[in-house]
Structures are given as structure tokens and as C-alpha cells.
């Protein structure tokens, strides 16, 4: 195998997949850090977001224009899910909310299956040939995916670092009691967090869909790699989620050198076990779970 083959058939797809995982993992790490529970409905929120974008595309909107609309819709949906389900459980032990999120996952998936059916769908039909960039083969959709992920990460980082409410979110993740003593309104931070998480879910679902296909189980199937990425990077750390996502994505694409392709999905599981054994706070020193 030549270097170019390695880059084009393993590394580039790994980076594309990894950056999609990163977007999902950022959402998981935000819920973990600020709301302090493992959100099992994350993958199915991504599925719903992907199918909302599909509905918009079917209505004649260009896929990449449908993405921001789907993100906005999912921001509202996520706030609604919180108000309808998780909000009632906030005084109970967190494990109750974790289990409830599993129920929400099944519910959201059922909605997708009832409305859109169970057959695989695509945003655009036909085969797209990749363009050659100095030997690196990239399709437009892969290029746009990478650009969108970079934009999302930069935008979110700037928001968390420099805006008043971004700092409030970090403060709530860092020390919730002290944040409350400082006058930060917990309900507003919770709403804002869900809005961002919902939008991130839609983005990751859409990008999974446009680089492959849509089906009702697509989100559930990437839940494990996304959790692995969040924990690998360090819970509560956005930059850790990005790093973790890229590592898991690339590792999955590389795994076929040592494992049959059917076992690709096991890579994330192995990584998750290893990091929990060796460095449970993650690569960038996140929270202890």
C-alpha cells in the first residue's frame, strides 16, 4: 500500500468520521459536565435532527442550507425534551434521569420510524467522484463537513471563553454551588445547554447522513463511539471531546489492519475500556465520574 492509499482510504475517512464523532462528543461532554448525567438519548436526538434536515431537503432546500434550520429546530426540541421529562427528575438521583434518557431515546426513534419509515434514505442520490487536491482525494461533502466542524468548534469555544453566558456554563460545570452563590440562574444555564446540545446533535446526525445514509438506528449506533470520545478526552472538556472524537474515528478506520472489518465498531469499546482502566479522568484531565 502506498502512502497516498493510506491517506486516502484510511486517514482521511478517519478524520471525517472522527470530526463527526467530535461534534457528538462535545454535546455529551456538555451534558455530563453541566447537568451531570450520561445522556443516552444523544444518538437518537442526532437521528431526529438528521431526518428533520431530510424533510427540509425533500421540501426542496439545499442540504447544507437545511443544516442550520435543523440545528435550530433541534435546539427547541432538546429544550422541550428537558422540560417534558428531565426537569421533573432533577431532585432525584441522577441515575433516574439517565434511565429516563434511555426511554426518551426509544421514543424519539419510534417517532422517526413512524414518520419517516425504517428504510435507509439519502439527502442526494447518485455517486459523487472525489476531487484531487495534490493527491489527497476529497469529496465536496467531506470538505464541507470538516469546514462545518471547524466552524462549530471555533464558535463554541469563543462562546464559552468570552461570552457572559458561556462563562456561566463553565462556572456551572466547574462548581455549581458557587455558581449559584454568584447569582447564576441554573434554569437559564440548563436551557442554554440543551439548546446548544440539541443543535450539536442535529449537526452530527446530518453529517453522518450526508457522508453515508440515513436510517432510524444511525444515532444509536454511534452513541458508543461518541461516549468513548467524550470520556477519552476528559469529561467536561470541549477540546478533549474533539481530540477524543478524532482518535476514535481514526482508530476505527485503522482497525481493519488488525481486525476484520465487521469488528470496526468494537474499536470504540476497546478504547473506552482502556482509558477507564489506565486514565479514568481522560487525556485532558476531565471530571471523575
Amino acid at each position: 500500500m502506498t502512502l497516498m492509499d493510506f491517506l486516502n482510504f484510511h486517514l482521511v475517512p478517519g478524520i471525517v468520521l472522527g470530526s463527526i464523532y467530535a461534534v457528538g462528543a462535545i454535546g455529551i461532554t456538555l451534558v455530563f459536565g453541566i447537568l451531570r448525567f450520561a445522556h443516552f438519548a444523544h444518538g437518537d436526538m442526532a437521528t431526529l435532527g438528521a431526518f428533520i434536515a431530510l424533510a427540509l431537503v425533500t421540501a426542496g432546500i439545499d442540504p447544507w442550507r437545511a443544516l442550520p434550520i435543523a440545528m435550530a429546530v433541534m435546539a427547541v426540541v432538546a429544550i422541550g425534551v428537558d422540560k417534558l421529562f428531565y426537569d421533573y427528575l432533577k431532585a432525584r438521583p441522577k441515575i433516574v434521569t439517565v434511565m429516563a434518557s434511555l426511554g426518551v431515546a426509544l421514543m424519539l426513534r419510534a417517532v422517526v420510524q413512524v414518520v419517516f419509515g425504517v428504510d435507509p434514505r439519502t439527502y442526494a442520490s447518485g455517486i459523487v467522484r472525489p476531487d484531487d487536491y495534490f493527491g489527497i482525494l476529497l469529496r465536496d461533502r467531506e470538505l464541507y463537513t470538516l469546514a462545518a466542524v471547524v466552524l462549530i468548534v471555533i464558535g463554541l469555544t469563543l462562546f464559552l471563553r468570552h461570552s457572559r453566558w458561556g462563562k456561566a456554563m463553565r462556572a456551572m460545570s466547574d462548581n455549581p454551588d458557587l455558581a449559584r452563590l454568584s447569582g447564576v440562574d441554573n434554569r437559564k444555564v440548563t436551557m442554554l445547554t440543551w439548546a446548544i446540545v440539541g443543535a450539536l446533535c442535529a449537526a452530527s446526525g446530518f453529517m453522518l447522513g450526508i457522508n453515508n445514509e440515513l436510517h432510524s438506528m444511525m444515532g444509536w449506533q454511534v452513541l458508543l463511539p461518541m461516549f468513548a470520545a467524550a470520556i477519552l478526552g476528559g469529561v467536561g472538556r470541549v477540546e478533549g471531546a474533539v481530540l477524543g472524537g478524532l482518535i476514535v474515528g481514526i482508530a476505527e478506520e485503522m482497525s481493519i489492519f488488525i481486525l476484520p472489518a465487521q469488528y470496526k465498531a468494537a474499536t470504540a469499546f476497546v478504547l473506552l475500556l482502556l482509558i477507564l482502566l489506565v486514565r479514568p479522568r481522560g487525556l485532558l484531565n476531565g471530571k471523575v465520574l
Binding site: A171, D174, D177, L178, G183, V184
Partner: peptide, 23 residues
């Protein structure tokens, strides 16, 4: 000022003051 856990450890000194002035 609580006895323990009385700063935002993952935030800078200046950001701690900014959070103090949140209101």
C-alpha cells in the same frame, strides 16, 4: 465565602472575579 470549594478551579483568576460580578 464558603470554607471549601470556594473558587472556580478551572477558570482563571480574572474569570473568577468576572463570575463574582455576574449580577
Amino acid at each position: 465565602v464558603p470554607q471549601v470549594d470556594n473558587v472556580f478551579r478551572e477558570m482563571t483568576v480574572h474569570e473568577n472575579f468576572e463570575m463574582g460580578a455576574f449580577l
